Computed example of a mutant assay.
Amino acid sequence: MLALMAAWELAAPRRRQEIPRLLRWSNNLALVALDALCVRLVFPVAAVGLAAVAQQNGWGLLNVVALPGWVAVVIAVLVFDFAIYLQHVLFHAVPALWRLHRVHHADLEFDVTTGLRFHPVEILLSMGIKMGLVMALGPPAVAVLLFEVLLNASAMFNHSNIRLPHAVDAALRLVVVTPDMHRVHHSVRPSETNSNFGFNVPWWDRLLGTYRAQPQGGHEGMTLGIEQFRTTRDLWLDRMLAQPLRGRAGGYAINRERKGERDGG
């Protein structure tokens, strides 16, 4: 998926990129490798493996309710997707969690590698939340595997710097989060940053009032990132790892915007 979206970005880019890919991609992908290493070291079993153990031992709601296998899979995928939506909102609402999550938002460009750029502590917290949900829900292991594949593939798709015809984008965003829809979430304006939280499906944003169709400045004219970290030096791996400890939490945490910051001023 990474190779596919990278090739698509080169063939039909949505926005012109000013920062060399070598600088951003080398550091973003180094962060991905570090994230994967941390997960392997901290968690002895992945979420899919834990789901298999839960099934064997009858743990979780779906293991005590008699449902056809395909129904359990659909329910589990949707519940996990809604949980990730709520987790995403939480990481925007709590200043301490926003310090971690802003590493993702501080990328000054928006492309397929942005979808993989997360601080290792956020990755570990997210995995812990998924593990807890596996224990409580008891989903089929295949549902967890399917969700993980969808989550990673959709994150790379909807963070891609690709151009889709307007009609195609309008149709797709009825069922999946498109790049144009999610790019709004990476606007420098706090009112736009705190919208479009979904990763796989757009329904949670539409149902819960966090959907925003387009950025105020247009996709070509909008400024990406956050106000605090705007130098190319901030794109280096060491700065990304230290970023949660640097500066104030900022005006982006939900309901904590300072006057004048609501529109990125």
Rank of each mutant, 00 (worst) to 15 (best):
A213G: 01
I226T: 10
L146E: 02
P202N: 14
M5G: 01
A72D: 03
P140E: 07
V53T: 09
P13M: 06
S195E: 10
H182V: 03
G264V: 06
V53C: 13
E261S: 05
V73H: 09
G60I: 05
Q87T: 01
Q17V: 06
V103N: 04
G217P: 10
Q17G: 04
A153G: 05
V177Y: 09
G265I: 00
L23K: 12
V48T: 08
L237F: 11
G198V: 05
R230L: 12
R206E: 11
H182Q: 02
H166M: 02
G251L: 15
A54G: 13
A253C: 13
Q55A: 14
M156F: 10
E9N: 04
L245D: 08
V64K: 00
I254L: 06
V64T: 01
L37H: 15
I162K: 00
R117F: 04
L146C: 11
T178P: 14
Q56C: 01
L241G: 08
F197G: 00
D234S: 12
L108N: 15
E122R: 11
Y211G: 09
F91A: 00
M181K: 09
L133R: 09
G209Y: 01
L174M: 14
S154P: 05
A141I: 14
A155Y: 02
N152Q: 06
L125M: 15
A7R: 09
A213C: 03
H166K: 04
K259V: 09
R117P: 00
P165W: 02
W203P: 06
P202E: 15
W203S: 11
R117H: 05
H105P: 12
V48N: 01
W59G: 00
V103R: 01
G265R: 04
H92W: 02
Q243E: 14
V177E: 13
A171K: 13
L10N: 05
L150P: 00
Q87F: 05
P139W: 13
P120H: 06
L224Q: 12
L41Q: 09
Q17F: 08
M156C: 13
F80M: 15
N200T: 05
M156H: 08
P139A: 13
V149C: 12
H119R: 03
Y252A: 13
Q87R: 07
V134E: 13
T178L: 15
L208P: 08
V73Y: 06
P179C: 03
V201G: 01
G138A: 13
V184C: 06
P165N: 08
Q55T: 15
L29Y: 09
L241Q: 07
V175F: 15
A155R: 06
D111T: 06
E18L: 12
N28V: 05
V177W: 05
V184N: 08
T114V: 04
P190I: 15
